[in-house]
Amino acid sequence: MPQNLSTNTSDRLIEANPDCENWIVDDDSSTEAYYPQETELTVDPYRLFRFLSDLEDILLDIPGDRDRLKAIMPLVRHLLTSSYWLQMEYDQPSPKTGWSVKMLYREPEYPLTVQMVAWQPRSVSPIHNHGVWGIVALISGEEKNRFWKRSPTAEHPDRLELVGEKILQPGEIISFMPGAIHSVESIGDEPTISFNLYGETNYKQRYEFDVTNHTAKNF
């Protein structure tokens, strides 16, 4: 069943982080703070259909993933603070897996998916990449991201090295280049709720990693 956040969630999204921090995780999993230039976004409410149309224009007009991410992140923030109903659209995390994914938009031949993701407190994801660009906007709870990079040896070609971590607070937006590798942990005592946006899935480039055995497998 869908679960609703409190009606002041959109205020929390703005006020919890007045600096409106945005982060880009590169293909080598290094992180960079990004402060977009102020632009006047006058459409209010900024509805999902308009957001999707703007995204399609960006994908057509901007060829590079990094530049696309920089163009999309301000639109994600505008969408969530304007169409606040989106922040109340999520499913309870599964007791079996510890997480849930509610698909907000998916269409054949449209090269992205829009999701709301919920994690039970203290749930931890496998270490993985997505093989495509992605954007995560944290709405509620706290989420620890650990970042990894490939550090192959002759014996272990899929060996990883931990390069850093970042705890996301409500209002922060983090974006990932296709080669970025991370794991996610929901910390604190309340579920972690996020708005997730991903480019066209490339399953051949999407891996789950085992750092103990230095292996990788498609998922």
Rank of each mutant, 00 (worst) to 15 (best):
E190C: 02
W133V: 08
K96L: 15
G64H: 13
R66K: 13
G64D: 15
L80M: 12
D91V: 11
R159L: 00
E172Q: 15
D54I: 00
R77P: 08
A154M: 02
Y110W: 04
F195A: 07
L80F: 12
P95H: 07
E107F: 06
G134D: 10
D61R: 11
Q115D: 09
V101I: 15
P178A: 09
Q92C: 06
D65G: 01
I193M: 06
D158H: 10
V136E: 10
V117Y: 11
P108M: 05
G164I: 11
R146W: 04
I173A: 09
S100D: 14
L162H: 13
L160H: 07
Q115V: 05
D57W: 00
D54R: 00
T192S: 13
E172V: 06
M88V: 01
I62S: 07
P93Q: 04
G64I: 03
T192Q: 07
Q169P: 04
P121Q: 11
E142R: 15
P93H: 03
K144H: 06
H182F: 04
E165S: 15
E185S: 08
I127Q: 06
G171Q: 15
E89T: 06
R146D: 08
E107N: 07
R106D: 06
E155F: 02
I62K: 09
E155D: 10
T97S: 14
S82L: 01
M103R: 14
H130M: 09
M103D: 08
S186I: 04
P111Q: 01
V163W: 05
G164W: 06
A137F: 10
F147C: 03
Q120Y: 12
G164D: 03
D91P: 00
K166V: 09
S125R: 12
W85T: 12
R106I: 03
A137V: 11
W148F: 14
G171K: 13
D189N: 08
M116S: 15
K70T: 01
F195E: 05
W133F: 15
L75K: 07
R122V: 06
I193S: 05
L79F: 11
Y105H: 14
K70I: 01
M116N: 14
P74C: 07
L69F: 10
M177T: 02
E56C: 01
Y84W: 10
R77D: 13
E172T: 07
L86C: 04
R106N: 08
D54Y: 02
I127K: 07
K144D: 03
L104I: 12
D91E: 14
R68V: 09
S151I: 00
D67W: 03
L75G: 12
L86H: 14
S140F: 09
E143F: 08
Q87Y: 02
I127M: 05
S125H: 13
R150L: 10
L160E: 02
V117H: 10
V132K: 06
T113H: 02
W85P: 00
V114S: 05
A118P: 07
E143M: 14
L59M: 10
L162A: 10
M88E: 12
I187C: 01
M103P: 05
K149P: 00
V184A: 03
S100Y: 13
A118W: 13
T192Y: 03
